[in-house]
């Protein structure tokens, strides 16, 4: 399928998103100006280490971050006839709740704790159906059961009345997908949906997501730190580091032609099957710094092996377009602004 992005409408456009969390020690800035857009039917991979702000970014779309998070920027969501800035909606207001679960929904890393232990799986999925589709008990149960069957839950009628502890991890993830997709949302946010699962189950879940994506023609924001999964699932990749997107390109481009030193490091740290060299995997020194009182410089400066002294520790790199489909935030490719 042609995934050229220009001729497609973006389902969601995140523009210069910032998230601040006031704390006793100062203001934490885990997300510092993130912009991306996801087009219809497209899968965007958001890749980065733990703590780089990818989960907060995704939760900001649904407005389900903690109340003490302060957000800035715009999140434009395309409805049939108008565009809605999700950040303008009040926390927990009816408008944002109409988006959640119905137009954009989310699946989570740990399916084992994503369901309330005291209600049956069916009731919890059905709650979503009844909130957004129909309040008719018989009809909604039909829709729910149908979705449970579609995600591959065998014996759905019996499973409907079972509790989460009677499900296996993989089955729970299927149930969670059923809950997220029961209203046929335009956007699915998948926050590391396979990290907590066995490898064999992982593959099944990914296949399931891909086939359902095609069937429902939805867009996916796929958050992960697993580059193997990205190659399998995504059309485009945005690499995030310390609250910023440092490189964005198509999957092929990212793997074949990574530009940012951080992306190069990430790709280099993946073991390639079939290569016979016994050399050690590459690893990036250090850890992501805490996003508290950050100095004005490139966030990756301390860990970067090709840093330019006097530039990278003095200025913050902006976005440089390498071609239509590949952008990077790095002074190595931004000769003009080095002295600016």
């Amino acid at each position: 399928m042609d995934r050229r992005t220009e001729d497609r409408v973006p389902v969601v456009q995140v523009k210069n998103l910032t998230i601040d969390i006031p704390m006793d020690e100062g203001v934490l800035t885990p997300v510092r100006g993130v912009s991306f857009s996801i087009h219809e039917g497209e899968t965007l991979g958001l890749v980065g280490e733990s703590g780089c702000g990818k989960s907060l970014t995704s939760k900001a779309i649904l407005g389900i971050n903690d109340k003490k998070c302060r957000t800035g920027g715009e999140i434009l969501f395309s409805e049939a006839d108008h565009v809605l800035d999700l950040l303008k909606l009040k926390y927990g207001s009816e408008e944002i709740r109409k988006i959640r679960g119905e137009r954009a929904s989310m699946i989570f890393q740990e399916p084992m704790v994503a369901f309330h232990p005291m209600y049956t799986i069916g009731a919890q999925i059905n709650e979503c159906t009844r909130l957004h589709i129909t309040s008719d008990k018989v009809k909604s149960k039909e829709i729910t059961l149908d979705m449970m069957k579609r995600v591959g839950i065998a014996n759905a009628e019996k499973r409907y009345d079972q509790y989460p502890h009677e499900f296996s991890g993989g089955m729970l993830q299927r149930a969670l997908i059923a809950m997220a997709l029961v209203c046929r949302p335009a956007l699915l946010i998948a926050d590391e949906p396979t990290t907590a699962l066995d490898v064999t189950i992982q593959a099944q879940i990914l296949e399931l997501m891909k086939s359902l994506q095609k069937e429902f023609d939805m867009s996916i924001l796929f958050i992960t730190h697993d580059l193997g999964v990205v190659a399998n699932m995504c059309d485009r990749v945005a690499v995030m580091y310390l609250g910023k997107i440092v490189e964005e390109a198509s999957v092929r481009e990212i793997y074949k032609n990574p530009k940012h030193p951080y992306t190069k490091g990430l790709i280099g740290s993946v073991h390639k099957v079939g290569t016979h060299n016994q050399s050690k995997l590459f690893s990036i020194d250090g850890t992501v710094p805490l996003a508290l009182n950050l100095p004005k410089r490139c966030g990756f400066y301390e860990r970067c092996s090709s840093r330019i002294e006097g530039v990278c520790n003095r200025l913050e790199p902006g976005r440089t377009m390498l071609d239509d489909d590949h952008s990077v935030n790095c002074f190595l490719y931004d000769k003009e602004n080095i002295h600016g």
């Binding site: 939760k59 649904l62 389900i64 927990g92 709740r97 109409k98 988006i99 959640r100 679960g101 119905e102 929904s105 989310m106 989570f108 740990e110 704790v113 994503a114 369901f115 309330h116 232990p117 709650e127 979503c128 909130l131 957004h132 969670l176 809950m179 997220a180």
Partner: peptide
């Protein structure tokens, strides 16, 4: 808890 977040993500009121 995670399930509170799940509930919020599917549009359940506060």
């Amino acid at each position: 808890k995670q399930y509170t977040l799940t509930a919020r993500a599917k549009g359940v009121s506060e």
